[in-house]
Amino acid sequence: MTATPVAALIQERFPQVAGRPSGDWPAFNVPADQVLAVLRTLRDEAGFDVLTDITAIDAGLGHSPRFTAVWHLFSTTGHTYVRLAAACADAARPAVPSATGLWPAANWHEREAYDMFGIAFAGHPDLRRILMWDGYPYFPLRKDFPLAGLETVLPDAEVAAETAAKVQAAPLMGGPFVAPPGTTMDEAEPRAGDQSWTEREEKPR
């Protein structure tokens, strides 16, 4: 860990917390069961009184741990940020504790992380989808979910029956055509993502 006052405080109170490589602010990898204690210490003793963001990162299928929840805190007095990351132990049913008891701001951020990744926040009073509609069956920001989406029914049964419209995969014509991240220059040539050929034609085999 870099030597900052907040790092010293965390190191002293929570010896199991490790530093996390970060481009800017102090960042820590916290075991999921200690997250609430670390957040509370940062809020009450280190002056990080604003919860500015909660999000998650999906490392991809096959990585373990797959899902990592990330919290960003801000201090109105010191004007600095701190980042906490906690890995979810189970990739099939990812869960971390909910910070709604510490900040009411956590409520909507955690609903969004649940909606996009399927991470359950234990202790959240009202964990339901916020950006997609309630019956949507998938978690869109997971790496195994295609950008074009998967077919499902429209949220409203009456309108679906009247117009015969469905939620269809967007016609990406073999795209998105992009260089895969995290590759070296020779393998970084943009390749077709091969998602949803068009809605009228299947992808030629």
Partner: peptide
């Protein structure tokens, strides 16, 4: 307005969170 950019190298982000 916050941007949390996670990069694994290359020209495409691994994760971009818009706060």
């Amino acid at each position: 307005l916050g941007f949390y950019v996670v990069s694994k190298g290359g020209g495409v982000p691994w994760r971009l969170k818009i706060r």
